[in-house]
Amino acid sequence: MQIFVKTLTGKTITLEVEPSDTIENVKAKIQDKEGIPPDQQRLIFAGKQLEDGRTLSDYNIQKESTSHLVLR
């Protein structure tokens, strides 16, 4: 499924993911596309910070959901 990640600069990154993917996996995909190390990434969805060990389905992130990327 596709999800979108919006950066603070207003850029939207499109990612191909599975509901069973962990947040860690998603951060690795963002690193592949954008070159941002996962330890600098914070992903926010529905006002919550997403934890590495959880999956997209844990957070009820469905296709075409948009989460926000904040850099630390």
Rank of each mutant, 00 (worst) to 15 (best):
T12Q: 07
K63W: 12
L8M: 13
L69S: 02
D39L: 08
F45E: 01
V5K: 01
I30L: 07
P19G: 07
R54L: 11
Y59N: 02
V70H: 14
P19I: 07
Q49G: 05
D58N: 05
F4H: 10
T22L: 11
I13W: 05
Q31T: 08
F4R: 08
Q41V: 09
G53V: 07
G53M: 09
T9I: 07
I44T: 11
L8S: 14
D21E: 09
H68V: 14
P19A: 09
S20T: 13
Q49Y: 13
E51I: 07
M1V: 06
Q62G: 15
F45N: 04
A28G: 09
T7W: 09
S65N: 09
K27N: 01
G10M: 04
S57D: 08
D39N: 11
L50C: 05
E51P: 02
I23L: 04
K29Q: 10
E51C: 09
I3A: 01
L8N: 12
R72E: 15
T14V: 13
L56N: 00
S67Y: 13
G53N: 12
N25V: 14
T55M: 09
D32V: 13
I23W: 02
I61D: 02
A28V: 12
N60Q: 08
K6C: 10
L71S: 06
N60G: 15
Y59M: 03
F4M: 08
L50H: 01
N60S: 08
D58S: 12
D52H: 06
S67K: 10
Q41E: 01
I23P: 01
L43I: 08
L71V: 11
K48Q: 14
V70G: 04
V5F: 06
E16T: 13
Q40W: 08
D52K: 04
G47A: 04
D32C: 08
R72A: 13
D39H: 12
E34N: 08
G47E: 04
Q31C: 11
D58M: 05
G47F: 04
K6R: 12
G35L: 04
P19C: 06
D32H: 11
I44E: 13
N25P: 00
T12R: 07
E24W: 15
S57W: 09
I44M: 13
D32G: 09
K6W: 10
Q2Y: 13
S65T: 12
I44V: 10
L56E: 01
K29R: 07
F45L: 08
V70L: 13
S65G: 10
P19N: 05
G47Y: 05
Q31S: 11
P19F: 07
I30M: 03
T22Y: 07
L69N: 02
Q49C: 13
T55D: 03
E16D: 12
I3N: 00
D39F: 11
Y59I: 04
F4A: 06
E34T: 15
F4D: 05
K33E: 07
G53D: 11
S67W: 15
S67N: 10
I36G: 02
M1E: 02
T14C: 11
V70E: 14
I36P: 03
T9A: 12
R72C: 15
L8P: 15
R54F: 13
L43T: 00
L15C: 02
V17R: 00
E34S: 12
K63H: 15
Q2K: 13
T7H: 05
V17K: 00
K33P: 02
S20P: 02
T22E: 02
Y59C: 03
G35I: 02
M1T: 04
S65R: 05
P37C: 07
V17M: 04
N25F: 12
D39Y: 12
V26N: 00
T14R: 10
G53W: 13
T7N: 05
P38N: 06
L50F: 02
E64S: 10
G10H: 06
P37T: 06
F4E: 06
K6I: 14
R72Y: 15
G47M: 04
Y59K: 01
T12M: 13
N25L: 12
A46N: 15
K11T: 08
T22S: 08
E18M: 14
D32Y: 11
Q2R: 13
K29M: 13
S57K: 12
D32N: 11
Q40Y: 07
D52P: 06
I36C: 04
P19W: 08
I3W: 02
N60I: 04
P19V: 07
I23C: 01
L56V: 07
I30E: 00
I61G: 01
T14Y: 08
K48T: 13
L43G: 00
S67P: 15
K48H: 11
R54M: 13
E18S: 15
G47K: 04
H68G: 06
N60W: 04
T55W: 03
F45P: 00
D52A: 07
I23N: 01
R42Y: 13
G35M: 04
I3T: 01
E64P: 06
Q41A: 05
T22P: 05
L8Q: 14
T7I: 12
M1C: 05
T7L: 15
A28H: 13
T9W: 14
K48R: 11
K48S: 08
I61W: 04
F45G: 02
F45V: 03
R42N: 13
P37R: 09
I61M: 08
